[in-house]
């Protein structure tokens, strides 16, 4: 396995707040990498830096060997590096099928393709993926009328529709009914194995992330606190202290 995302020495501050200080980490191709840390430790800032949401103050971010720290959000997305949002974002006034169809990979569409209608294969794939996340029956409903958890599932399905190489998930299980979490873990795993999408996940639910990830990074106060296999992280006294507030 090789590093598909290579972050080295990235810093980002907002006014006086140092959200990320000299962060270095890698995401291995084909694996599931976790990112944990207490609230406000800079996890989402790191995600935002990677996908080009804001310029970084220093350091470099490479995706498949290409420097992306100066690129814009849509350009990075078209490379196949996609993210979902912590505050779920879907297209509220469109129905689920339309939400899926507009999520087709735009890196593969020319301007002339935009003037065509979606093909029946596109529709089948959209319905298949909606079925995959369990939203098939609700596919003709307006996305804004779905519950928060369902919107989260829809956003996940939209991300799969985009056929990304790497998917950055910001708290995929937050707000999801605990009885559905096992189902979601299963689907995330299948996305990783069946669709061979590299996953990079921010997660607060330790049971979920420890079960899924091959490698886990832990942030605290904007700095990289620890990294390693789930077992190592679980037993790391610094991580436990950070979560329990020993700092």
């Amino acid at each position: 396995m090789s590093a598909i995302i290579d972050v080295s020495g990235v810093s980002k501050s907002f006014g006086g707040v140092k959200a990320n200080t000299d962060i270095s980490m890698t995401v291995e191709e084909g694996g599931i990498t976790g990112l944990i840390g207490p609230n406000g430790s800079g996890k989402t800032t790191l995600f935002n830096s990677i996908v080009g949401y804001h310029p970084v103050d220093g350091g470099s971010i490479r995706f498949e060997g290409q420097e992306i720290s100066k690129m814009l959000v849509p350009e990075i997305a078209r490379l196949g590096l996609l993210r979902t949002f912590q505050q779920t974002r879907i297209y509220g006034e469109m129905n689920c099928v339309e939400n899926m169809l507009i999520s087709l990979p735009h890196r593969k569409l020319s301007i002339w393709d935009a003037f065509r209608r979606n093909t029946s294969e596109d529709r089948e794939r959209a319905e298949h993926l909606l079925d995959f996340v369990g939203l098939f029956e609700k596919r003709w409903l307006q996305a804004s009328s779905l519950s928060f958890g369902q919107q989260k599932l829809l956003e996940f399905a939209m991300a799969l529709m985009n056929e990304p190489t790497v998917l950055l998930l910001d708290e995929p299980t937050a707000g999801i009914n605990p009885t559905l979490i096992n189902g979601l873990i299963d689907r995330l795993r299948r996305a990783n194995t069946e669709f061979s999408i590299t996953l990079f996940i921010i997660e607060h639910n330790m049971r979920v992330i420890m079960n899924m990830a091959d490698t886990i990074y832990c942030l605290a106060h904007g700095q990289m606190l620890a990294s390693g296999k789930p077992e190592e992280i679980q037993d790391d006294q610094r991580v436990i202290d950070a979560y329990l507030g020993a700092h």
Partner: peptide, 10 residues
């Protein structure tokens, strides 16, 4: 519906 999402989807 959500321009920021649209950008994030490429």
């Amino acid at each position: 519906d959500d321009e920021e999402k649209a950008e994030a989807m490429g």
